[in-house]
Simulated scan of single mutants.
Amino acid sequence: MRINERRSLWRRMKPHLLVFDAPLAMILFLLLATSMITMYSAGIEYPGRLESQVRNTMVAFIVMWAAALVPPQTLMRLAVPIYTAGVALLVAVFLFGIVKKGARRWLYIGFDIQPSEIMKIAMPLMLAWYFHQKAGMVRWHSFVVAALLLAVPVGLIQLQPDLGTSLLVLSAGLYVIFLAGLSWKALLGLFIAGAASLPVAWSLMHDYQRDRVLTLIDPTKDPLGKGFHIIQSVIAIGSGGIAGKGLLKGTQSHLEFVPEHTTDFIFSIYAEEFGLIGILGLILIYLLLIGRGLMIAANAPTLFARLLAGAITMIFFTYAFVNMGMVSGILPVVGVPLPFMSYGGTAFVTLGLGAGILMSIQRHRKLVRT
């Protein structure tokens, strides 16, 4: 009886424990292992930083597991409430938010939260739900409504101001709109309109945002001031050479030349210590992550699931591309972390939630077929 009871218990618990997509889980394991090794070196001057990263990873793992259990149908029902709550919190930040370092981005509800992080997932959820409702009836005005749904949170985030997060939320929404069938002609028109509006956008930028663009164009104009950090980051990447200097031997980080080298600039530390070979290996892991996500999106059973999985996957791509680009000096510094590598609690949880949603879509596709 006891053996049968144990087998019966395992059968009941198995569907709730074995919820991860094996290929995606293996890719994430490689990324997280690389993150821990790099954080051990980058955070050695910061006691407790590695332990905090381990804790953040465990929290993200729990969130990912919980998200993988939630069926896509439930996510679809939650899309509108989550989006509405996110916008309401952004309005609350605008009215009552906490100011830190000149930016009003946080809200105190017994503890500090950053509502803009919610929109990174809430935005593709909402637009995927919207286009799912319009399946077979998508017209030009459907894209106008989608653009308005996207513009509201992006505008509120930009008012904080938070250019990096607003760009990430904007890109997440645009990915859904594009995957929903926006024509190339419309995209070309939007690109032309965007290019034509650059002078207006420039006039609306804050001084520090203009400085970032000017620093990107010529960091040597102020090498000991605004251009110092990006110059040192590029030096760190280049000094790694082919094979790198080795773990704990990166001078740029350990001599405090590179700023925020456990968060936004962790890629420059990784590149200095592991060189071109390490960079190519890391890029390969990210390509595998994106490839697996796109496979899950392509095989998803519903339009909602396809749009959501595709958008989340491209969010991972945007994170990686923008971070590597900004620390390499080819994009402005906008404060975007390297996914599953940079230190940070909120970003790790958001990324874990995104990965969990991908696993949910893949898992429930299999359950439907069986």
Results as ranks from 00 to 15, higher is better:
346 T>G: 14
4 N>G: 13
13 M>Y: 13
207 D>T: 14
42 A>D: 04
302 T>V: 02
159 L>N: 12
29 F>D: 06
118 I>Y: 02
26 M>E: 11
104 R>H: 11
329 G>V: 04
210 R>Y: 12
254 H>F: 06
341 M>L: 14
220 T>K: 07
14 K>P: 09
333 V>Q: 05
258 V>I: 15
106 W>F: 10
87 V>F: 02
259 P>V: 09
300 A>T: 01
248 L>N: 11
326 M>C: 09
368 V>E: 14
33 A>L: 11
140 W>I: 07
121 I>N: 02
59 V>W: 06
158 Q>P: 08
370 T>Q: 12
188 L>G: 08
353 L>I: 11
94 F>G: 13
122 A>D: 01
61 F>A: 12
13 M>C: 12
193 A>H: 02
220 T>G: 14
41 S>T: 04
310 G>H: 00
80 V>M: 14
198 L>I: 12
201 A>C: 07
114 Q>C: 05
339 P>V: 03
301 P>E: 10
199 P>G: 08
100 K>Y: 12
15 P>R: 01
21 D>P: 00
76 M>S: 15
316 F>S: 03
290 I>L: 05
272 E>I: 02
128 A>E: 00
16 H>I: 07
143 F>Y: 15
365 R>K: 13
332 P>Y: 06
177 I>D: 01
256 E>L: 11
141 H>A: 09
247 L>K: 06
124 P>L: 01
74 T>R: 14
188 L>D: 05
351 L>Y: 02
136 G>A: 09
239 S>P: 07
360 S>W: 02
54 V>G: 12
59 V>G: 07
277 I>V: 12
127 L>R: 05
241 G>Y: 06
6 R>H: 13
44 I>R: 15
363 R>C: 01
109 I>Q: 04
85 A>M: 15
187 L>G: 10
39 M>G: 03
119 M>E: 14
250 G>S: 06
2 R>H: 15
100 K>L: 15
8 S>V: 12
293 G>K: 00
8 S>I: 13
70 V>N: 02
